[in-house]
Design a protein around this nucleic acid. Structure first.
Lengths: 338, 338
DNA sequence: ATTAATGTTGACACCGGTGTCATGCATCGG
DNA sequence: CCGATGCATGACACCGGTGTCAACATTAAT
């Protein structure tokens, strides 16, 4: 297997390196005849440009980093899948970088990541999307970035938002329309700003119905299955049991279902449960969870696409797009029966 | 932020580029005084070598590719997590490459991957670990690779095996020891060779107990939740219902649980269920699944570590290691009650 | 003291591309 | 018919490292 470089192609086609490079990059000012000749040589030699050399010349790596710290594996694979697709379309590579928000000093970690890998850009997923310190650092260092699902932090940058508040409002409204009045809520991780957004939607829906917020019906979770169990116990074992529980994500909702089963409560007859995210578990358990499906892949795909395009554009343009979640009804919700 | 190259360091330290490079790579034959001086300059300038330039000079990318086609997202994240850790330890990057075994021509796909990304090595996860065509191609092209959990294909290469047959034997033995005699089995995807390995363990355990294999108790699944549902229906609706079901993975086992619930069969009182893999779902549903935990992260970590080391060693050495699975008992299994 | 062996260092080409600029040639307006 | 303009092409330096080899300094052996 001979090594085929730009030199061999040039020799084969009887032109200079530079002309080959021009054809490669679709630059103008190459005669049709020459272009033809060179492309013929590409085929005959089965030439593939070396991305490393190209990267060196451009001082670019053609690598996009994807930063995450999220307990949900299915969320991560969905993020990756969207990001990967966008990268492949643009001939970039994806470097995944799991990283604990509360672990070693974040900025040092990112500093090392960037300087050793020479990333061309970074995609931030929650909870990093709302991390001011990080965003400020990236701006200072002039590293292009895009944010997926930011909530609180407003910032001139590429951001792909979801409307968690609206979706949480919708799903709460569903419970209300089924006749539920006593609806408990399990919050997510305080570091994720989606946590407050979802809670806000819940509060708003209750408020419109004139239902007061009961503190004993609000539990502090952290998106993990385990925290869902604890919260569920606290809520379901209280004197006045609610007739429905809204957990801020599907893992915690699944945990509520488990605790309910252990307490011999029938879902949905004795208790309605709704989750959020439409994680695989939502349809893998019985009864299936009523939840909100978010277009995670699409959001990340879009974020990475915009990021790469902005890197290659003469000037960086900042965009903001909103993707809507969709209510999915399964078997975990039913009419309130007294 | 000035660009700090090897030249600036050399100038700063008053030595040649080459000497800086020597210190960088811990080469011998540098005097202590000089080494000191250069390291001082590293610190003062906060120098980070450019991996791209280094890659070009070495004709290496310092990137390891991870090939997978697996419906289980949790399996993939576990694989990734082990691979990532190994890469980070050795200063390599990880490129993830999802790829359908039955999609576009596999070899073409890999050909493109390798020639555009210049991977230094490839980790194969099931079902690719046993793909002869692929392995032959990699050998031909002289691409280092390591195989995670291969079963059928024997081949001089780095391979990290698990003993699926033994583990399946163990878990079947558990059911037998609980008094179950009518044990159904749901097979995995025919492309994965673990499918046969697990089945073999089941057959062997039954055989030792003198129990004949009943064809109507063996269903063909494909590891997906959905196939588990279909198989479960077929098995549970048959005239002579088994008292236990062994599904080749946890997703299918979860599906069995769902179907059982829909049929008002109590688990584990009326039906014991065991799975395989110890996927998150195994402990996220109620009752929790008795299953086999595989050290997936460890296996991949080891595979990647060996791969990188063999790439950097003068001569490639082939190794084979076996990692054992562990039986985990949860609530989905109980004594057979007549 | 002389020679040989060993350790330390730098000049220079090279990895495989891209950017800059100069050059040659054809076309065009006056 | 000539200079101006535009297009096609190639020579060459450069990106930031590493390999080769020669030069020089030092030490050991005779």
């Amino acid at each position: 297997m001979e090594k085929v470089t730009i030199n061999s192609v040039a020799k084969h086609a009887g032109v200079s390196k530079k002309t080959v490079s021009r054809v490669l990059n679709n630059e103008p000012n190459v005669s049709d005849a020459t272009r033809e000749k060179v492309q013929q040589a590409f085929k005959e030699l089965n030439y593939r440009p070396n991305p490393i050399a190209r990267g060196l010349a451009h001082n670019r790596s053609f690598i996009i980093g994807c930063l995450y710290d999220n307990p949900s594996k299915s969320y991560i694979t969905r993020v990756q899948s969207g990001a990967l697709e966008a990268c492949q379309e643009r001939n970039y590579n994806l470097l995944i970088h799991p990283c604990e928000l509360r672990g070693e000093p974040l900025i040092d970690n990112i500093e090392t990541l960037i300087s050793t890998s020479r990333l061309d850009g970074l995609v931030l997923t929650p909870p990093f999307s709302d991390n001011k310190e990080l965003v400020d650092y990236l701006k200072l260092r002039n590293i292009p970035y895009a944010r997926v699902a930011p909530v609180t932090l407003d910032d001139e940058s590429i951001s792909i938002k979801s409307n968690d508040t609206q979706a949480a409002y919708d799903i709460t409204k569903l419970l209300l329309s089924l006749g539920h009045k006593e609806i408990a809520f399990i919050k997510g991780h305080p570091d994720h700003s989606a946590t407050e957004a979802r809670f806000d939607g819940y509060v708003k829906a209750l408020g419109e119905e004139g239902i007061a917020l009961k503190p004993e019906f609000v539990a502090e979770g952290n998106f993990s299955y385990h925290s869902g169990e604890d919260s569920a116990r606290k809520i379901l074992e209280s004197a006045a049991r609610p007739s429905a529980v809204f957990a801020s994500n599907d893992y915690m909702a699944a945990a509520v279902l488990k605790v309910a089963s252990q307490m011999s409560l029938k879902v949905p007859d004795d208790l309605s449960i709704v989750g959020f995210d439409n994680a695989p578990i939502a349809r893998h358990i019985w009864p299936g969870l009523t939840t909100i499906a978010q277009p995670v892949e699409d959001m990340t795909f879009r974020a990475v696409t915009l990021l790469i395009d902005s890197i290659n554009a003469a000037e960086i343009e900042n965009m903001e797009e909103i993707f809507a979640g969709k209510l999915i009804e399964r078997q975990s919700t039913a009419q309130f029966s007294h």
